[in-house]
Design a protein around this nucleic acid. Structure first.
Lengths: 197, 197
DNA sequence: GTTTGATTTTCGAACGATCGTTCGAACCCT
DNA sequence: AGGGTTCGAACGATCGTTCGAAAATCAAAC
């Protein structure tokens, strides 16, 4: 059963790459066959449909980023440190898995039915995780502002696929630090440091 | 010639709405015909192709947001005020023209050839405008950080279409103020106020 | 105010192309 | 020999676009 899993992983990885470059809808199953080295019909031995293929990519990627975030929080007890650890993990994970994360961010409204419900469930938990961190780090903010701030932060982080060049001047760690600085400095510390102390 | 222009505007507005809801690639010309009240063939009297239709929407919207930004800067001379005015204008414009701005943000890689070049030219000028504002507001930052910060800001602002509900609790002005606060507080004031004063 | 003719605008019908998916036979490995 | 794996070929559906003719609009002539 090992070669089966390897072939599936290979297919998902190549598909994520092509989806990221050309977009889900303008990528044909024939394109994926060419990119993965399989035949058109052969892919259907590993995957139920094109939509199922996308769901598998999104589901695995979202689970990985969620689990990674939880373990990245280990060892941090200060609310602000935990929030910064979350941001740094998300950004570095994003830059390290650009194709999958672009597919996750950019094709989030494609799925329907049960596949959509399954992915949305992980997304919900991930958003809830950030909202909890925000509640601890900025307890005095109004809930509606905290919620909007969470999405603003996700915007900064998930927009990366639109412009970031891994071969460019700024490395992932520095980018993560910059985004953490902007958000913590602008949303968290602005209250607790400037106004409160 | 007036009825012609009105019909074209109507088509573009309806198309933007459908593109925003379903995405460019999964919207058929037949869908647009149904939404605009025209016949399938009738639309081609106003538009050369489906891609031309998308380009018209993006071009008009980008020009509007660019011109609006320039005039929003009038009357502000302080660099920080100018940056805040830019942010407030972008966010309020975005929430007021959600469909067109979503199409602009989400379908930015669809066009090709001359159509793509034309839209990218306006985009370049708009990004340059923000980078200039940033240079004045945060002159001590390293250019690579300033550039990344500009994209982080665009991320916060352009991600709006993924979550913002105009009928929800937070109104556009408050959202604009929140994003301005996060960015100015985290990127600009963190240097000039905390470190410098 | 009606008729006429030219121009603008609309659209039913059809084209070729491409899409996701399926089927059954062939292949490979043990 | 037998089950896991591959794939050529074809299916029906839908896509963007085109064409030629009908319909609507308008201006000038009577």
């Amino acid at each position: 059963m090992r070669p089966y899993d390897e072939r599936l992983e290979h297919l998902l990885a190549q598909a994520a790459k092509v989806f990221a470059e050309a977009g889900y809808h303008s990528t044909s199953m024939r394109d994926l066959a060419a990119a993965s080295g399989m035949s058109l019909a052969g892919m259907y031995y590993y995957v139920r449909s094109k939509e199922d293929l996308l769901a598998l990519i999104q589901e695995r990627c979202f689970t990985a980023v969620f689990d990674g975030a939880r373990s990245a929080l280990d060892g941090h007890s200060d609310p602000q440190d935990r929030l910064e650890a979350f941001i740094r993990h998300h950004v570095t994970f994003f830059t390290a898995h650009m194709s999958e994360m672009k597919v996750l961010s950019h094709e989030s409204s494609v799925l329907s039915g049960d596949l959509r419900r399954k992915v949305n469930h992980i997304k919900r938990r991930y958003v809830d995780l950030l909202e909890t961190l925000l509640k601890d780090a900025a307890p005095d903010e109004r809930p509606v502002d905290r919620s909007a701030a969470a999405y603003a932060l996700f915007g900064m982080m998930n927009w990366i696929y639109n412009w970031y060049d891994p071969a460019g001047e700024i490395d992932p760690e520095r980018l993560a630090g910059l985004i953490a600085r902007i958000f913590l400095g602008g949303f968290v510390e602005a209250r607790s440091t400037v106004h409160g102390g």
